[in-house]
Computed example of a mutant assay.
Amino acid sequence: MTASTDGQVGDDAPLALQDPDYREAVIDLLGAIAYGEISAFERLAEDAKLAPSLEDKVAVASMAAREFGKVAGIHARIAELGADPFAAMAPFRGAIDRFHEHTAPSDWYEGLIKAYVGDALADDFYREIAAYLDATTRDLVVSSLEDSGHAAFVVDRVRAGIGADPRLGGRLALWGRRLMGEALTQAQRVAAERDALTALLAGGIDRPGLDLAAIGRMFARITERHAERMAELGLAH
């Protein structure tokens, strides 16, 4: 796929990418993911300061570096589509920043839960949308959502913490529910403000769409996966 000098997608692009509404939606989606990765990097770098040991500090800092390493590929794809990566990210700063402001962790364990559960909620949503993208963009999105070492590390540390202090489990279970509530609230605000993303799920040229029942099932799957992660952490309360 190529982009001409005037910013239009080349003739060899898939039919869907020649639909300006679809392309706008893809640019929106990639902008949201890119800014989410940058925010994840910043947050993990801050969380590293809360680490109780040098080993934990290095582990979290390494996860932060991997998150930041994903941004370049997403920016390149946005540029291929004829858009400015920073302009594409800008509409999502408010919602993503508000989510982080409302869910600032108070300690090491809350930071771990947020890094694992909070990021996974967004990733699950993006994976669901990826099924309705052209192949090149879909593969990029899926690869950008690959685990950066969060899962095994977080599960090990959280389970060890609960083993040492069983009271910790109740507090972290509540924290996990709060993260989900805040994530859904911000996602709804973004969808309401970005018509292109909402229209993406409805289908278009050369693309299937989702009806309301299918969208409901999609969110049910996201909720189920959240519950599975909480159970894996020992927080199925």
Rank of each mutant, 00 (worst) to 15 (best):
S39K: 13
R189I: 05
M89W: 06
R217D: 08
Q188E: 15
Y35G: 00
L81A: 08
L235F: 02
V26E: 09
L201K: 12
R77P: 04
R23L: 11
G10P: 07
S106T: 07
G170R: 09
P52R: 02
A183G: 05
R138N: 12
R127M: 10
V142N: 10
L233P: 09
I27F: 11
W175D: 09
D12G: 05
A122D: 03
R98N: 11
A48R: 01
T137C: 02
E224I: 09
F86P: 00
M218T: 11
L50V: 00
A72P: 00
F86G: 07
H226T: 10
A231H: 03
A88N: 07
G69V: 07
A76D: 11
L15W: 05
V142Y: 04
M230A: 05
I205Y: 02
D97E: 15
R127A: 12
G161Q: 00
T2L: 08
S106G: 15
L145I: 03
I27E: 07
A120F: 09
G216H: 13
M230E: 01
V142D: 10
V142C: 04
T103G: 07
Y109H: 13
I33E: 15
A236P: 04
H102A: 14
G31Q: 04
D21M: 01
D165I: 01
D12H: 03
F92D: 05
T198H: 01
A231Q: 07
L17N: 13
A88M: 10
A79V: 11
G73Y: 05
S4R: 12
R178L: 04
F153M: 04
K49I: 10
D56K: 02
A152S: 12
L212F: 10
V158C: 12
L235M: 05
L212P: 01
R43H: 13
R66M: 14
T136Q: 11
I113G: 00
I33S: 12
D6T: 13
P166E: 14
L44T: 03
E193A: 15
G7P: 10
M230N: 01
E101Q: 14
D134T: 12
R194H: 13
S148H: 14
A130D: 08
